[in-house]
Amino acid sequence: MEELNLSDRLRLIAGLIKKGSKVADIGTDHGYLPIFLVKSGITDRVIAMDVRKGPLKKAEDNTRAFCVFDQIELRLSDGLAALEKGEADTVTISGMGGRLIQSILTNGMEKLDKSTRLIVSPQSELREFRIFLKEKGFLVLEEHMMTEDGQFYVIMECVYMGADYAPQTIEEAKLRYGESLLREKNESLKAYLYKEKRIAEGIYTQLSARNGQEAAVQERLGQLRKDLDCIDFALEYYNFA
């Protein structure tokens, strides 16, 4: 094999991964995406997992053919089962229906750290899958749509905000800071957010140091926590390149 024939869909997914990421590719099939990520210098190591032995053996053959066998760790795994918490900061899942991806994420949620990136391309049940993401603490930052070989594909860039993440924070942040400004990663807004965060954290620290449990102080601390959650949510747009 002299040239890797990567589909346009997988190239789009690869282009969404930040350089230097620790990637776990779920349902890797023949390992084309991990091979491309390593060969193109996007990352120097990938965990490639599949539930089937046949495709995983083919992926092994391909990694040897492209001389990246020592940089791609192949694991037989049902979804995220063989992944240890903290091993990956970016998870890719594609080529499956929405319900199957939903099942994989539900069964492996404990393997994800807060701020784990999820790049996913469900092939069906899109409406239900979007609802699932919101309910389970995933923030969808961007969606991309393309056609290939007569088929339509949606690729979602998401970040895991944590099980205690409140979906209403999304709408509050958009109202406060402007959805279009957030999506374009406006640099002036970014500076403003960091300024507001420093101010809120300073006030929070001062109030927390007070003795007593005055109702007014506790109410103000609660509001500051909500403000900081909202700011942190907004800053995730900038963290996801």
Rank of each mutant, 00 (worst) to 15 (best):
E2G: 13
D8G: 07
L10M: 09
I13D: 12
I17C: 03
K18N: 07
K19M: 09
G20Q: 04
K39V: 01
I42P: 08
D44I: 02
R45P: 06
V46M: 05
V51T: 06
K53L: 14
L56C: 07
E60M: 04
N62Y: 08
A65D: 13
C67E: 09
F69E: 15
F69N: 14
F69R: 14
D70Q: 11
D70M: 05
L76F: 13
E84S: 15
K85R: 15
G86M: 08
T90S: 03
I93A: 10
G98K: 08
I101E: 13
Q102Y: 10
S103F: 01
S103H: 15
N107H: 11
E110V: 04
K111C: 11
K111I: 08
L112H: 06
L112M: 11
R117N: 03
L118D: 10
S124L: 05
E125D: 15
L126D: 05
E135C: 05
V140C: 13
V140L: 09
L141V: 09
E143Y: 01
M145E: 15
E148D: 10
G150R: 02
M156E: 07
C158V: 14
G162S: 09
D164F: 11
I170Y: 08
E171H: 10
E172T: 08
E172V: 03
K174D: 07
R176Q: 11
L182E: 09
R183D: 00
E184P: 00
K185D: 01
N186P: 01
N186D: 15
E187I: 13
K190G: 00
K195E: 13
E196L: 14
K197G: 14
I199Q: 15
E201N: 12
E201L: 15
I203K: 11
Q213I: 11
E219V: 04
E219K: 12
L224A: 07
K226F: 06
D227A: 06
L228Q: 09
D232S: 14
A234P: 00
L235V: 11
Y237H: 14
